[in-house]
Design a protein around this nucleic acid. Structure first.
Lengths: 333, 333
DNA sequence: ATGAAAGCGCTAACAT
DNA sequence: ATGTTAGCGCTTTCAT
């Protein structure tokens, strides 16, 4: 593959040692006399020797590679998580094999199997919804898995998340406090555990606790135009305050409201639930539940390094703090 | 690594054939009698045999893995390119090892060397600027490299791009035709080949050809706040029409102009040069040079598959069409 | 501290 | 059409 195909054997011969010694030098094993080490190092430099990671992987059964499963690279929620993951991966000298799995001919479990066949040392899984097949595939393996910004049904996999219930409740309180009583929760997929187990129950509890009427949950709002097209329905129903989980959709909703002459935030308030770049550049600026996406990714990857090192986890489920950032899409009384 | 560590040898024994035959079945080699194939397949299913890709890689010297070098995952320009790359990679059964290289402790050539050590079959490089070290590292190897949405100085590497000169000239004509004569080109890095060899010469030629006065090039405008903070200077200098290369910066510039009471597009026109999601959701909507980012990525990856297959390229440098999308940040007379 | 040798799991001649 | 065998480049006992 490389032009100069210098192997460990060439180095050994040239340095007049065995390949075992070269291997020790390369791997920083201390059982090498300083002189020998220096001599070997010199030859390595001179011959431009680079270890073949595939051969190392086969012999050692560790590839220093982790798999990343992500629905969509162009979704900033996952991109920002990935950045945190990547930075920690670099720190610990892991490479990342990335696989996006949304809208794909290839089934998710096939993607996962492919990753496992490549002998990745661990996997980070991100998604709105951990599919059945994915969960099954993970359970069939020893390879450690961590979820980042993703919840599974029965907490079977280690994860890094925020407290979605608490965050949503705080946001709903903000809306209510601003005098908005016809509230809506707008999600991408009702059946995603994050919604089914956290956001929706929190919303329903809040509505019940405050004896609100005419509140509603809207499902299947995933992209810009979904958000844009939803506004008329909300207006007709008199909804005047929403939490919307996808940043791109919130922007669509905002633009739609403005285009139809709604006053934001006087008549209609929006809280968006991720705080990606896209939510922060529109006008009026969106009030947002700021999730520490970079940190969530970093923490998840750090957990994975521990698992790959058989160190065990103090906390199987790490919950990071969020912030409710009050901007111009809410009155903030 | 996997719980059931079934090897090709187990399958061979169980199916009463040699491992060579199993290998043939796994690799779709036709030199196997149908009965034998069926029997082997049955055993493979029954034992849940999965080939170890690392061993395959070592023996065959092909890893079906390509390296992707990208400055920043959260930059939508690169994310959208990556999506095109990824889709074609899946089609041709390649995995992707992704390495982001901006703001990193690890030097770029070390990142590249790491990729080569993992025996990737090819590399796609994306950046504003192909660094010296990167170019050197690539030249030391046989591994094919393709640039996506990236230009190198002397066209030494195959690439997929648009005609930046033509695109910018068309945009400048739009501005001039709208009556804007104090024009600016706003870039991230003057020294990036894409700017030094294409955008800047095109801008200078346009200014000279049309005998315009007070036009200027602004450098080092890379993120939202750079764009936001630049506007006052533009206003002071009387600049009334700009092409700006980074979408995030354009949005900063737009918001800044609006905040300071400028009328867009009456007094100040903006054309942005990538057309990522972020440029399309702000109001007023930005006129943009729409680069076919997904396609650029897809084409680059397709080129790479050919090179990895020793097929050779008809065209070493592919130029895809762009579109000038006229929105509300220009008058479009 | 160093070396010899046996694999890691597979592919790819080569032989039959 | 199938089997035999020699690697691929490295790590890792086990000796010494």
């Amino acid at each position: 593959m490389n032009k100069q195909d210098v192997t460990i054997y060439d180095v050994a011969r040239e340095a007049k040692v065995s390949m075992a010694t070269v291997s020790r030098v390369v791997n920083g094993n201390n059982n090498v006399r300083k002189e020998t080490r220096d001599r070997v190092m010199e030859v390595i430099k001179r011959l431009h020797y680079q270890p073949n990671a595939v051969a190392q992987g086969l012999a050692s059964k560790r590839t220093t590679t982790v798999g990343l499963i992500v629905p969509d690279l162009t979704n900033l929620y996952f991109a920002e998580l990935s950045k945190g993951i990547d930075d920690i991966a670099v720190l610990y000298k892991y490479n990342i094999i990335i696989s996006s799995v949304e809208n794909r001919l290839m089934k998710e479990d096939a993607v996962i199997q492919g990753l496992l066949n490549k002998q990745v040392d661990g996997v980070i899984y991100m998604s709105n919804k951990l599919s059945e097949e994915a969960a099954e595939a993970f359970k069939r393996t020893d390879t450690p898995v961590v979820l980042a910004g993703t919840v599974s049904d029965n907490l079977e996999f280690p994860s890094a998340n925020i407290d979605y219930k608490k965050a949503d409740t705080e946001a709903l309180n903000l809306l209510l406090n601003d005098g908005k009583k016809k509230l809506a929760l707008i999600v991408g997929d009702k059946e995603a555990p994050i919604n089914r187990n956290h956001r929706i129950p929190a919303f329903e509890k809040f509505v019940a606790d405050n004896e609100l009427e005419g509140c509603e949950i809207f499902d299947n709002i995933k992209d810009y135009s979904d958000g844009y097209n939803l506004y008329p329905e909300l207006a007709k129903k008199g909804i005047n305050g929403v939490i919307i989980t996808k940043d791109v959709s919130s922007v669509g909703l905002l633009n739609s409201a403005l285009d139809r002459g709604a006053k934001v935030p006087e008549d209609f308030e929006i809280v968006t639930a991720s705080a990606t770049q896209i939510a922060s550049v529109v006008r009026p600026a969106l009030t947002t539940i700021k999730q520490p996406l970079y940190d969530l990714g970093a923490v998840a990857m750090r957990m994975l390094t521990k698992l790959m090192n058989d160190e065990g986890l103090e906390d199987k489920h790490i919950v990071l703090p969020y912030e409710l950032i009050k901007k111009q899409s809410t009155l903030n009384k």
